[in-house]
Design a binder for these strands. Structure first.
Lengths: 246, 246
DNA sequence: CTCTCTGGTTGATCGAGATCAAGGCTGGTC
DNA sequence: GACCAGCCTTGATCTCGATCAACCAGAGAG
């Protein structure tokens, strides 16, 4: 989060990222962005687009959470990305969606028609630079995720996911310490299973096990708090610094 | 592979990617690149760098294959990337390696000192644009890989890996058809296991099984040929278009 | 209030792949 | 030649997580 293009920044009644472009944009670029933007909203659970769909816009997430998933012929699915506020959706230069995109919570997108956006990008280098930064962060996250998928046990996977969510949540709420910190899991058990390459039964069992062992505390099904963050990180199998969600 | 920055292009005695920058660079940028470049070579099996190492250069692979791997405390490892000729190593703006990098075959790198390279990038937008393209391709490959790691059976994983290698090899050799096409596996059984999140025993068994079932043919331990590419793709569980290795 | 639907939990069983273990093949060195 | 070290294969057994199945809890809707 800084003052470069495509970051969210509160700006009057329009709390969307492209406003932040203003800081470095020439006035006429700002006008272009204003002219080409439009909003779309999706309810929780709604599909946003399917893999292979024509995509005439790129977008930035204003509020809510969306997931990218891949599906095999026989229905097996794997989540391959999570879009949080300020994340970018769509690949400049590609007109087809590569993944299924689904709104997990209510989602608002700030959309830009693709062609004009690409044109603007071509002569506004800092937009591309910012996009490169974001993409490199996503790549790092994907690689952390690959270690989780390929080599961790079910218990370690759950611990890793909760750690990632806790870190993110704590950062968003500017919590001082994570110990004792409470938050809601944004994902259903099934979505967690899709994230981790498990079944929802195994997810449920491992969450119960972590609760029984005192590593996490549960209020209801979704609300989690972490009595001792260090103990949770230990369960991930990582060495102290652990997984990120860049 | 096109004429943009950072692609390999044969250019006299210097077959390295940055030569291709010339096509779009101003002469003085070319001079800068020439001045800051140097080469390094690594023997097969040699470590190129360890996660956390200080990295004072970025580099482009000239020849050979290198892998990026992550290692857990207890020694479990997961391959998270493969670098082929023309691929880029290092993240502009970061001075620490994020992964263990290992030469799988003999590797030659064309290196640029990081600081001057970053400076050059800042006022040569098409280098950043090209880097963005390459990073997006890597991200797509990583996501394909996540589906393999999370949801595929051992047999499907092996079939997917062989498919990826066959496609790449066929493209490099400009083969007309992949049916009947022969090539060498560049990886040991252990490296394949690290790639796929399996053990080397399982890799060996599944390769034997695919051979017994006539999906692949083996001459020796490394040389593979594919009698019917369609049959192999069927084994991957993908729908026809399948995995890529961008 | 009950009915029903969605999301979650828990139990019993099964099987794919890990683990442990014993060779085999090939290329190098003395 | 004999020896050795890497890399690979194959077998026996075990275990973790998938699968199949039953049940539970809360939130609407009627």
């Amino acid at each position: 989060m800084n003052d470069l293009a495509l970051d969210i920044k509160e700006c009057g009644s329009c709390p969307i990222r492209h406003r932040a472009v203003c800081a470095k944009c020439e006035p006429d670029e700002l006008v272009l962005l204003e002219e080409m933007k439009f909003y779309r909203t999706y309810d929780a659970g709604q599909p946003i687009m399917w893999s292979g769909d024509q995509m005439d816009f790129v977008a930035s997430v204003v509020t809510g959470i969306a997931t990218l998933t891949q599906t095999m012929e026989d229905g097996r699915t794997q989540m391959v990305g999570m879009l949080l506020p300020s994340d970018f959706l769509g690949r400049p230069g590609r007109d087809r969606a590569a993944y299924d995109v689904t709104a997990v919570s209510n989602v608002q997108l700030c959309c830009f028609r693709r062609k004009p956006f690409e044109a603007l990008m071509a002569n506004t280098p800092h937009i591309g630079q910012r996009l490169l930064e974001m993409t490199l962060d996503e790549l790092d996250a994907a690689r952390e995720w690959m270690l989780i998928l390929g080599r961790k046990t079910a218990r370690e996977k759950i611990a890793s996911l909760i750690t990632i969510i806790a870190r993110r949540e704590a950062a968003m709420q500017q919590a001082r310490a994570i110990d004792g910190f409470g938050f809601d899991l944004p994902l259903t058990r099934e979505a967690m299973a899709d994230y981790l390459g498990l079944t929802l039964e195994t997810v449920s069992r491992q969450i119960s096990a972590l609760k029984k062992d005192g590593v996490i505390e549960l209020q209801g099904k979704r609300r989690v708090s972490i009595p001792d963050f260090e103990a949770l990180v230990l369960e991930t199998g990582d060495d102290a610094d652990g997984g990120m969600f860049a």
